[in-house]
Design a protein around this nucleic acid. Structure first.
Lengths: 202, 202
DNA sequence: ATCCTATGTTGACAATAGCAACATTGCTTG
DNA sequence: CAAGCAATGTTGCTATTGTCAACATAGGAT
């Protein structure tokens, strides 16, 4: 017996989607990386156990969010590559900027995507959705090699270097560790420059 | 009234140290990054609230551990530099290896040192103890510049590049994200090579 | 000797993840 | 079209945690 009358039917009808959206909203809004299932349920206007009918676990929901994060990251990077307009140097630069921007704009989401909180992070990152951004990077680098602008070494290794550098800069930046007193004024730009030089392009 | 008799006196006498050591042991042992104050107290054989007489907060203890982590990291890096025997390239290489090894051997501690869980991570990282490893890197790079083996650019920027690369590689590795299928066989070595090239040395 | 204070302990509270038992419905199948 | 079943929500519970408050003990200063 529900006292509210005809509004809010017993069966929500689309709870899974709503839960995901609510949770994603919370992640994007919130700076700090805290996350309770019950809070999500509360915001979704549903009982504290309803989410368990759609996700076996808190980790399951988190995984879903992480995947969505990779989708968004991939979209951002794709756009950036397009903005590069065929010029390799521009493409890579745009990608780097887009990557860093993504992290800066979605701190909690980024932490979720790469943090150790996600159960079985290793498996998650081998899923196609999580691999998409990396594949994009691989393509760009391959084209760079074809254009003779990137040193002739295994692409995957070069991609790893790019990725690690971007990931490192992103997380350090997110946690407020790239303070000018410590690292100089435009540390990020300089680091990216070092990376470029390392891959030998002008 | 304690029923245990004369062993375990009411006042421990050295609880603060024991708590820190216990907590550090837990962090070093444990792969996963979970940490409850009560568990520390339990292992230390003390009531669940005893730690609060020595640390205002859970975060306070974590900060202490993080500082100890930086001390250890600094020690490891210092040893590595010495192992380099004056040759810049060797010094930097040893340092990089030592850094990565530190992360690999102390996953939970590393996460603690750089994770967002630590309250006020930004401030923490500006403390001298946390800056020591970075300062060491700065020195090595400066000597490299004097020896003409490192490109003449602001050291802090170069250091940021090194640091971000190492930090990125470390965390990615820790979370099991540098899978060979994704990133090639010796991604780490290649990434370090790219970094070296970027700083222009032979 | 006496008291004060640092240090420990017990007991509470609120919040959380997750389990179990129960309620409500829409869809299926006879 | 009726009966019932499975999906979806809800309430209530347990174990655990961080932290606060009140109390206990003991070592050292007065």
């Amino acid at each position: 017996m529900r006292e509210t009358g005809r509004d809010q039917p017993y069966h929500h009808g689309d709870l899974r989607r709503v839960i995901i959206e609510t949770a994603m909203d919370m992640l994007v809004e919130q700076q700090a990386w805290k996350f309770t299932l019950r809070e999500v349920a509360r915001r979704a206007g549903v009982s504290h156990n309803a989410p368990y009918k759609h996700f076996t676990d808190k980790a399951a929901l988190l995984n879903e969010l992480a995947f969505l994060g990779f989708d968004r990251l991939h979209d951002s990077l794709s756009l950036a590559v397009r903005a590069g307009g065929g010029d390799f140097a521009a493409e890579l630069d745009e990608m780097a900027q887009a990557y860093l921007r993504f992290g800066a704009e979605n701190p909690a989401l980024y932490h979720l995507m790469f943090g150790a909180d996600v159960a079985a992070a290793a498996e998650l990152h081998m899923e196609p959705r999580a691999l998409a951004p990396f594949d994009l990077l691989l393509e760009v680098l391959r084209r760079g090699q074809l254009a003779g602008e990137v040193i002739d070494r295994p692409v995957r290794g070069l991609a790893a270097a790019c990725w690690a550098q971007l990931h490192g800069l992103t997380t350090l930046k997110l946690d407020g560790l790239l303070r000018p007193e410590k690292v100089g004024e435009d540390a990020i730009a300089q680091a990216l420059g070092t990376l470029r030089s390392g891959m030998q392009m002008r």
